[in-house]
Amino acid sequence: MLFLLSPAKSLDYETPIDPSLASTEPAFIEQAHVLMQALKQQTPSQLAALMGISDKLATLNVERNHAWSPRFTPDNSRQAVMAFNGDVYEGLQAGTLDDVALDWAQHHLVILSGLYGALRPLDLLQPYRLEMGTRFPVGKAENLYQYWREPLSAYLLQRLQAQAAPVIVNLASNEYFKAVDTKRLKARVIECVFQDEKAGQYKIISFLAKRARGLMARFAIEQRIEHPDALLGFSSEGYRFDEQASTADQLVFKRKESDRV
């Protein structure tokens, strides 16, 4: 089984990490380099318009783009799972996983990325901002979906062939999962849906659902999950599997308002 996650916009390169932590290089450095060469042509005002971000953020990311190098070192990068710092990664809490758990994650977890295509947890990551949904034409590709669909799908197909069960558990957002050609993979795709009770009704609350995706990824890592049925036991932070609301390939987990911390 492969578990897919989205990246995070927020990055953390300040919190100390174990200097002996293993690291690997991303699979698509060449493709990322092509994208970054194009990004380096963008001025702060152009980048602000392209990404819909503030002038301050645009200036920061122009600086990041010009500092980016196809050579990854401990000085200019850190492991992806330690660098991403959004709601998903607050749920995952990768910094508290031991080496054995991280090694399992390395073989079962894939982080989709607008710049890097696909990242393993321990792949080195240089600071960047490029969301998959950005309408950024490069070469013959009109957007990042076209740019990544073939290499990303081929990569996931290869990774699936090394798994005991050819199953993808999608914990990524629609924005990122749209880059995957699921027909080419010919694999079972399981979606996990997380709903929280609010005013007596269950609904998807974005930041809580993102955190829950990270919690599910951590659950899978800690339990070394290799079969879809084991996902039903997920109960982190008060979530429970709802069989009646679920289908075979869409697993719904609900949490009562009283169980939310």
Rank of each mutant, 00 (worst) to 15 (best):
F3G: 08
S6M: 12
S6L: 06
A8H: 09
K9P: 01
S10D: 11
A22H: 14
S23A: 15
I29C: 09
E30Y: 01
A32P: 00
L35T: 01
A38C: 10
T43V: 09
S45P: 04
Q46K: 15
A48I: 02
G52T: 09
I53S: 03
S54D: 04
K56C: 05
N61V: 06
V62W: 00
A67S: 15
S69N: 14
R71K: 14
D75H: 12
R78T: 11
R78V: 10
Q79C: 05
A80I: 01
A80Q: 02
V81L: 04
M82T: 11
A83F: 00
D87I: 01
D87N: 11
D87T: 01
E90I: 00
G91L: 04
T96Q: 15
D98V: 01
V100N: 10
V100Q: 11
V100T: 12
W104S: 09
V110I: 13
V110T: 11
I111G: 02
L112V: 09
S113K: 06
Y116G: 00
G117I: 04
A118S: 13
L124W: 01
L125P: 00
P127M: 04
L130S: 00
G133Y: 02
G133C: 05
T134G: 06
P137Y: 03
K140Y: 05
A141Q: 07
L144G: 10
Y145C: 08
Q146V: 06
R149V: 11
P151E: 08
S153L: 08
A154D: 14
R159G: 03
A164L: 10
A164G: 12
P166V: 05
V167P: 01
I168Q: 04
N170S: 11
S173Q: 04
F177P: 00
V180K: 03
D181P: 04
K183P: 05
R184E: 10
K186Q: 14
K186F: 05
A187F: 04
V189M: 15
V189I: 15
I190K: 06
C192H: 13
C192V: 15
C192D: 13
F194Y: 06
Q195N: 07
K203Y: 05
L208N: 07
A209L: 14
G214Q: 02
L215F: 01
L215S: 06
Q223M: 12
Q223N: 15
R224E: 14
I225N: 02
I225L: 14
L231K: 12
G233T: 07
S236P: 06
Q244N: 12
A248C: 10
A248D: 14
D249M: 06
V252W: 00
F253M: 08
F253P: 02
